[in-house]
């Protein structure tokens, strides 16, 4: 049924901390690895070792440069900074990808809010990928069905794996702990707390999709320094003890 549920009991999703992400792409690879053997058809690659490799991936990391706006009255303009930006399906509450689907293959679960594709029903028309403003859906080049993040539905409820592994593969893998998984409908959950504390926000709010996943903004840098820090000076250690005495003596002679 490609009508959306009125509301969902839980809103399982991710919170991604842009302050922490180091852009290592480990989550990208872990996602591909798990999902190529998990739910649905494998994530194929075409021309993998050729000149124009393409393949389906459910999570990708973009890297942006942000040039802070000059604050009125600030002594200096903060330098531009690099922000690594992982992106996967946001499991939107008002998911346009679901309602456009003609076959009922795309659906949003009313118990946990996960947006999934039933690959046996999908005709590969691609309309859902057009409807998603975030580019979170990719047609598989081999199976010709639509692939998207499943929030590792085959891990999070999987009682055959150790409990600490019952989170999405990307979250489990992230070496920096920039990714968090939980129920965003529960105000007391860790993820909801994090969002409240850090001012977690929606991507493209203007598209009206009401994403469940939230992003935590990079923390402000100490960007009110009057002069750039002299890094070379920091590298010269202050000598102490015998070496300190020698340094002083030589300086005095010289």
């Amino acid at each position: 049924m490609t009508s959306l549920p009125q509301s969902t009991d839980r809103k399982l999703g991710l919170v991604i901390d842009l302050d922490i992400c180091v852009g290592c792409h480990a989550c990208v690879v872990a996602c591909k690895e798990w999902n190529t053997g998990g739910y649905g058809a494998p994530l194929s690659d075409q021309d993998a070792y050729g000149d124009e490799p393409v393949g389906s991936w459910l999570n990708r990391v973009h890297t942006f440069e942000v040039t802070p706006r000059a604050e009125p009255g600030a002594k200096a303009v903060a330098p531009a900074r690099v922000v690594h930006f992982p992106k996967s399906c946001l499991h939107c509450e008002d998911a346009p990808c679901v309602t456009v689907c003609p076959t009922g293959a795309s659906f949003k679960r009313s118990d946990d809010g996960i947006v999934l594709v039933n690959e046996d029903w999908c005709i590969g028309c691609g309309l859902c990928a057009w409807a998603c403003p975030y580019g979170a859906r990719e047609m598989d080049g081999a199976e010709k069905v639509m692939k998207k993040c499943t929030l590792c539905v085959d891990r999070i409820y999987n009682e055959n794996i150790p409990e600490e592994d019952r989170v999405p593969s990307c979250v489990r893998t992230c070496p920096a702990k920039a990714r968090h998984f939980g129920d965003l409908a529960d105000p007391d959950s860790d993820v909801s707390q994090m969002v409240a504390e850090r001012g977690g926000y929606d991507l493209m709010p203007e598209q009206g999709t009401k994403p469940v996943n939230k992003y935590l903004p990079p923390r402000p840098k100490q960007d009110d320094l009057a002069e750039p820090i002299n890094l070379a000076a920091l590298a010269e250690p202050k000598a102490t003890g015998f070496l300190g005495w020698l340094d002083d003596a030589l300086t005095r002679i010289g």
Binding site: E52, H62, F64, A129, W130, G135, D202
Partner: peptide, 28 residues
């Protein structure tokens, strides 16, 4: 607005997530 980083300042792509075209680039 896509990254939310507009709240900090001017945002531009520094590195794409993939080195060759993918389904998104071909379709969209």
């Amino acid at each position: 607005t896509a990254t939310g980083l507009g709240a900090i300042g001017k945002t531009r792509l520094l590195e794409a997530p993939h080195t060759s075209d993918n389904y998104l680039m071909k379709e969209m």
